[in-house]
């Protein structure tokens, strides 16, 4: 019975997220067709998501790039393969680490704040107030956050890649003893455009997940401050779980696509 309940809860959750996603797409198309898409609201969200997340994303990217070079650099140096360090680090960052780590950081920083903001709006009747003013809450609240997360996660992942490479290059030059030219050449020779694009595609999907899950958790908040707290935590946990689970399928799918069409 417990297993059945779990399955039922998961199906309900998955269905609700899918419906909210489709509603976001519908209201986006509706907004574009009627010329009433809330561009200002979208810009505000993008700016907030980008500015709020950038410091954490920068630290994460720099640290990850630096640590990767430390871990890989000495091993490769022993094998005489220093010239591959830049390439391996950049591929690891571009394909996996940058989108995943940026996704997790943004889920913690922005997913929680979206759930808290909308949860507070729900329990203080602000969402009801929107409806009484003939305004659809998905159109007004979800669409800008959904696209804000989706677009900005791609942008932030690009920053994570660049900052990770900067962190890696500093360690490679100062600790491993590589020249900057060797490190950069290695990146240019080994990193392919499809590695970058695959990672950015993942980032886009993770951003959409963070936006939809944050909004869903906010909209389903019940009770007072305790309910908002639960939604906030729930949004982060759920977003990270989904990011990790979906990452596997995306990786397989992107690899298959690259093998079939780009090899």
């Amino acid at each position: 019975m417990i297993l059945l309940d779990l399955i039922r809860d998961f199906v309900l959750l998955f269905g609700s997220l899918a419906i909210l996603f489709l509603q976001s797409i519908y209201w986006t198309i509706h907004g574009l067709r009627t010329g009433r898409l809330g561009w200002k609201n979208l810009m505000d969200q993008m700016s907030r998501i980008g500015v709020d997340s950038f410091p954490m994303v920068a630290i994460t990217g720099f640290s990850t790039g630096a640590v990767l070079v430390v871990q890989i650099g000495y091993q490769f140096a022993q094998l005489g393969a220093q010239r591959y360090v830049g390439g391996v680090v950049s591929m690891a960052m571009a394909r996996e680490l940058a989108p995943i780590l940026t996704g997790i950081v943004v889920a913690g920083r922005i997913g929680s704040s979206i759930a808290a903001e909308l949860g507070t709006m729900k329990i203080t009747e602000q969402i009801d107030a929107l409806e009484t003013m003939a305004t659809n809450p998905v159109d007004e609240l979800v669409v800008p956050r959904f696209w804000g997360c989706t677009i900005m996660l791609v942008v932030l992942t690009i920053f994570t890649n660049v900052i990770g490479m900067i962190g890696g290059s500093i360690v490679a030059v100062n600790q491993i003893g590589l020249t900057m030219t060797t490190f950069v050449d290695s990146i240019l020779q080994n990193l392919k455009i499809q590695d970058l694009m695959g990672g950015l595609f993942k980032a886009m999907v993770f951003g959409a997940l963070i936006g939809v899950i944050g909004c869903y958790k906010g909209f389903t908040t019940e009770g007072g401050a305790e309910g908002v707290g639960k939604s906030t935590t729930g949004a982060v946990v759920l977003a990270i779980m989904f990011i990790l689970a979906v990452n596997y399928f995306l990786t397989v799918g992107i690899n298959n696509f690259n093998t079939a069409y780009l090899s």
Binding site: M121, E125, Q126, E131, T132
Partner: peptide, 17 residues
């Protein structure tokens, strides 16, 4: 369309923060 003809004052005012 109906709600355009109606207004509601909420118990908590429900102002957008």
């Amino acid at each position: 369309a109906l709600r355009m003809r109606m207004g509601m004052l909420f118990q908590s005012a429900a102002l957008f923060d």
